[in-house]
């Protein structure tokens, strides 16, 4: 059980915190890859998913994208990209690969979010004379926010996990702590477990952090909270109100 008692020692050792291979440097690399890929995936996936959901076209495409994203192993795509001449082991190769895997959750959730907006609410907005763009901006997007944020969160957690796998191909990031502890000479369990704890903690912070951001960003929940603050009298549940509204307008 030496490996267990040695873990605090690993974290206390200043050698593990210094230089290009120290925890701070690897964490910054990990964060850089993840943020770049997530940003690019949102840039591509959100507009496409929102547009497909708004127009109601390409449902099959949105579904297939997420199926393909699940079926292709990270190891396979990255391994192939690295061997293709012109790519090689560069920052952009990994970010491109990560982005390809990060797009499906963002796109599919945005599509589903837009499609699941109450048709009654959309009809009501059109009846009030809103243009297609206005309906999208003022009705569909606010109501689809929870699912859109869900997709971004799924994507972010997946990207963080995928960056650690990239360490199998000698990329940087926190996964490096694990891969350099596992070699032909055997496994340095203490270092591998220390790296594992760092990666798991990072992923959990991203998951719960973005879940909290998603709850704050939901305009419907926010409006409900401020309404509750304004009036101390108990209100009927919102879902009932929504249904009534849609019945009267349709």
């Amino acid at each position: 059980m030496d490996w267990l008692t040695d873990i605090p020692g690993w974290f206390a050792d200043p050698a593990n915190w210094r230089g290009d291979t120290g925890v701070p440097a690897l964490f910054v690399q990990h964060l850089g890859y993840s943020a770049a890929a997530l940003g690019l995936a949102c840039l591509v996936g959100l507009p496409v998913g929102v547009w497909l959901g708004h127009t109601g076209r390409g449902g099959v495409l949105a579904q297939q994208v997420s199926n393909a994203g699940r079926a292709v192993p990270v190891l396979a795509l990255l391994g192939i990209l690295l061997l293709v001449p012109g790519f090689g082991r560069t920052w952009w190769t990994l970010v491109l690969c990560l982005t390809l895997f990060a797009i499906p959750p963002v796109l599919t959730n945005a599509y589903t979010g837009l499609r699941e907006v109450d048709r009654g609410a959309v009809d009501a907005a059109r009846g009030m004379g809103m243009s297609g763009g206005e309906v999208l901006r003022r009705v569909e997007l606010p109501l689809a926010t929870p699912l859109i944020m869900n997709g971004v969160r799924q994507s972010a957690v997946q990207v963080v996990a995928t960056v650690s796998i990239a360490a199998l191909f000698a990329f940087g990031g926190l996964g490096r702590i694990i891969t350099r502890a596992t070699g032909s000479a055997g496994i340095d369990l203490t270092a591998a477990l220390a790296g594992t704890l760092l990666i798991a903690a990072f992923a959990l912070v991203v998951e719960y952090g973005l879940a909290a951001v998603g709850r704050r960003a939901d305009p419907v929940a926010r409006a409900r909270r401020s309404a509750e603050r304004r009036s101390s009298t108990p209100r009927p549940p919102r879902s009932g109100q929504g249904r009534e509204a849609s019945v009267t307008t349709s």
Binding site: G195, I199, A200, A203
Partner: peptide
């Protein structure tokens, strides 16, 4: 589900 696969394999090793 949030724990990355690489980390999960190592966590189970001991």
């Amino acid at each position: 589900y949030t724990i990355p696969s690489l980390a999960m394999f190592i966590l189970l090793l001991p």
